[in-house]
Write a protein that binds this DNA or RNA. Structure first.
Lengths: 133, 133
DNA sequence: GTTCGCATACTCGGATAGTGGTTGTCCGAGTTGTGTTGG
DNA sequence: CCAACACAACTCGGACAACCACTATCCGAGTATGCGAAC
């Protein structure tokens, strides 16, 4: 069980945008080169993020992506959910018996993880990075 | 991101063995029918579990699988690790920069989940099930 | 009654295949800024 | 000087393909049990 690379790219991109604090939009090209991946593929990921209202795109020359307003409220959980979807981490195949004890435990474990992800804001990491600049 | 079905099958099988408290080994056939899956596939999963020393096999007629001794120490984490492997939940692709802040957060989140999984023993669930019998 | 052999009921492990999600590429269309050209 | 135009630099979205892990099946080989026949 692993988070996809797309999630990794998404988190790094969001963090990059947050740390750069650029007024002008940042192009996919630049973001892709920085992460050493294909611009076309990254654009697919950014489309997901913009549909989730975490960033928005500016088309045309000098276009690119910018963080939404109130981006300082964004958490890890938001980004991960936007990419991975809202699926639960575990399915119990024995559908007939509801109240599966195994499922219960897995859900508790997942919740503990989610608490961390929901409490970690992108903005607080961006601040840490800015300190080194 | 999801745990595989194999993990689901493994957990249910282990719990079944723990709750049944049978002296004689339980055949793959029976375990597979109970979970409504293919015996051949389940046997692959059980092979992994036996390589991880959680169960052992008794071959020949009336053969099957039995829990190891000290099975009451088995935790969710043990079973999951045996099936999913010891891989971390998240990889940071930007290998060059060690001390990635994103990776740090993800590892903390994963640890919180692992704490739950490591503290949940199969035997305590098996007791709950036995109470209803 | 003891022993041998065989059928049966299992596990084990390799080979193979379908399936679906992830990852990645290609291309055409739409949009915006910029520079150029002609009046 | 200004307007119209062309071009370049972007994003957007669909179509498509490669790849890989998960899921699943099949089969041959090995092993233990139990039963029956032969001595």
């Amino acid at each position: 069980m692993k988070y996809s690379k797309a999630t990794d790219y998404a988190l790094h991109t969001i963090l990059f945008l947050a740390a750069s604090r650029s007024e002008t939009p940042t192009g996919v090209q630049q973001l892709a080169i920085w992460q050493n991946i294909s611009p076309t593929y990254l654009s697919k990921i950014l489309t997901k993020l913009s549909k989730a209202d975490m960033i928005y795109s500016v088309s045309g020359a000098n276009g690119g992506y910018k963080l939404r307003d109130n981006w300082d409220e964004l958490t890890f959980f938001d980004v991960i959910e936007a990419i991975e979807g809202k699926n639960s981490i575990f399915d119990c195949c024995q559908g007939q018996r509801k109240g599966c004890l195994i499922l219960e435990t897995m859900e508790i474990a997942e919740q503990k993880m989610d608490i961390v992800l929901k409490s970690q804001k992108i903005s607080s990491l961006a601040e840490k990075i800015s300190m080194y600049k």
